[in-house]
Amino acid sequence: MGRYFRRKLLIYGLTFVIAVSINFAVPRLMPGDPVARMLTRNSVSNPESSEAMRSYFDNVFGFDVPVWQQYLNYWAALFKGDLGVSVYAFPASVSSVVLDALPYTLALLLPSILLSWVVGNALGAKAARNKLLDNGVLPIGYILTAVPYMWLAILLAWLFGIILGWFPVAGGYSFALTPNFSWPFIVDLLHHWVLPFLSLFIVALGGWAIGMRNLVIYELESDYSNYLQALGAPTRLIRRYAFRNAVLPQITGLALQLGVVVGGALVTEVVFAYPGLGSLLLNAVTNQDFFLLQGILLFIVIGVLLFNFLADVVYVLVDPRTRLGLEGGQS
């Protein structure tokens, strides 16, 4: 078990270092001059102020020292929690802007990921070896996995927001209200939350259902199932064993799918103008706010790594073979 965790932690640590290094290297390696672009963006025409801004940005990027020292400085700043100052939300710091948006994204992501996983697995397990249900679940599942996240979000917004008018289609809460802990505000928050959540939930559902269906079929054809059947064990029992074995790869799958789901959440938020990381990202892109952009990337990477580690812990708890250092749970 110790070896398993050491290996995993090594990979996550390495991933973090590489993500930070990408963040550091991209602005310096890309063709073009980001500083010049920021200056033109701010349309500074006065040569003197342009010069002052240029030296300011050079200073912020730390361009005036050798590259290796820039790299070390970058890490040092990172550990102090200093991700720079956001241009778009000046003078707020990047970390504070991102931390403000983070709760909204988490409130969308966590319930939709977990619920779609649970419901999808239950559906898939039911559909396996059940002709009637299978004929419905399989095609719908494949179509759902093929739907681009933002398109389903647009369709839901159009149907339930514009045509039926049941839900609001933009924002995290009504602009008439100020955020506070009162019932009307919480109800309003939930009202705005339903559609983005639903769209994330539905898109992810299909993949889990299909995966579970295939795994359960595979398990039901394996030797132990046949043996149990030959012994005359009840079908319910056999199916329960098959399900428990099939859940293991799905836990790994949950961790692996996370990057895609986070991407889906970003574009879904853009559709609904939901005030999470996705909308922030859109603002950063349109305003060419590079510090903010990279800050968001770092937060996403850290989140994904934490979640992966959590999935590993769950895997060890669920699968005794990893605990005993036998097979399973390879890195």
Partner: peptide, 13 residues
């Protein structure tokens, strides 16, 4: 493990 979309966004921006 690297969230591909986030990295792609940073690079392409």
């Amino acid at each position: 493990v690297l969230p591909a979309l986030a990295v792609l966004i940073v690079i392409s921006s």
